[in-house]
């Protein structure tokens, strides 16, 4: 269970660019939920993820995982329980290192990075099996540097790396947004499969309303730092893309766009 309680966050306090993102923001996510988060640009979706991961600090309020307050915890410590895939496929892996080296590092998450050999040769078959399941032919390219892969291949690898070790939360930050439609589809199906297999609690920010409606168990729409729609179960499965677009248009008119 992840909860954000009474979060306040303002960027550039005391300057002309002062922007209030969150004012008494509250959200609770149950274990095993797959939450899709949609909303216009600047609605606070990515800030929400950054607050959960500790990338940015909050002005006040608390972040709790299973009741434990992690508001002041360093970002890297939070990642013991969190896996994250970014919009930019390059963010999830090291381009000058090989696929094998990247996977070896991911496999060692949560353990000590000591003076033992970086790659455990006994694990190579396991990595190869994992790569084969991606269906992108990466299993034959273990020694290729990641920089030589396409965006889709890199994103698939990033997804694999972030979910390789047991994690409690998977954070997906528009992770299909920079891919072509076909590859985006592949990555989305892959995501769904991994989330189901691992039963990991997932928060996915997306601009793709179809993904938001057809995947996941809960849907949240954000606007100006507030949750304006929060549906799950039957209510979610009845909601169509048109319904969501309708709400979007209504907000836009209210804002005078």
């Amino acid at each position: 269970m992840l909860s954000l309680e009474h979060i306040y966050k303002t960027y550039n306090i005391g300057t002309i660019n002062e922007t209030c993102i969150f004012e008494d923001f509250n959200l609770a996510i149950e274990d095993g939920e797959f939450v899709s988060v949609v909303g216009s640009n600047g609605s606070g979706k990515t800030s929400l993820l950054n607050i959960i991961c500790g990338t940015i600090d909050v002005d006040s309020g608390n972040t709790l995982i299973n009741g434990v307050d992690i508001t002041r915890m360093d970002d890297f410590k939070r990642y013991r329980k969190i896996g994250r895939v970014y919009q930019n496929p390059a963010m999830g892996s090291c381009s000058e290192m090989t696929i094998l080296e990247n996977l070896s590092m991911a496999d060692n998450k949560g353990k000590s990075f000591n003076l033992k050999p970086g790659t455990d040769k006994r694990r190579i078959d396991f990595y190869r099996d994992n790569l084969r399941q991606l269906g992108l032919g990466l299993e034959d390219k273990l020694n290729a540097t990641v920089g030589s892969l396409s965006g889709g291949q890199r994103q698939a690898l990033a997804l694999l790396m972030s979910t390789m070790t047991p994690i409690e939360f998977l954070i997906l930050d528009e992770h299909t947004a920079s891919l072509d439609p076909k590859v985006a589809e592949t990555i989305m199906e892959l995501t769904d499969r991994i989330v189901r297999d691992k039963g990991v609690t997932t928060i996915m920010v997306t601009h793709n309303l179809r993904y938001a409606t057809s995947y996941g168990s809960r849907l949240i729409m954000m606007h100006e730092g507030k949750i304006i729609l929060d549906i799950k179960g039957d209510e979610k499965s009845r909601t169509t893309i048109e319904d969501l677009l309708g709400i979007f248009n209504r907000i836009s008119i209210e804002c005078g766009n």
Binding site: D75, F76, K77, Y79, R80, I82, G83, R84, Y86, A90, M91, G92, S93, C94, S95, E96, M97, E101, N102, M105, A106, N108, K109, G110, F113, S162
Partner: peptide, 15 residues
């Protein structure tokens, strides 16, 4: 090697 290549990866490895 990872920290010079892509620091975000090191952070996401909880290091």
């Amino acid at each position: 090697r990872a920290v010079g290549d892509n620091p975000a990866v090191v952070t996401s490895l909880a290091s």
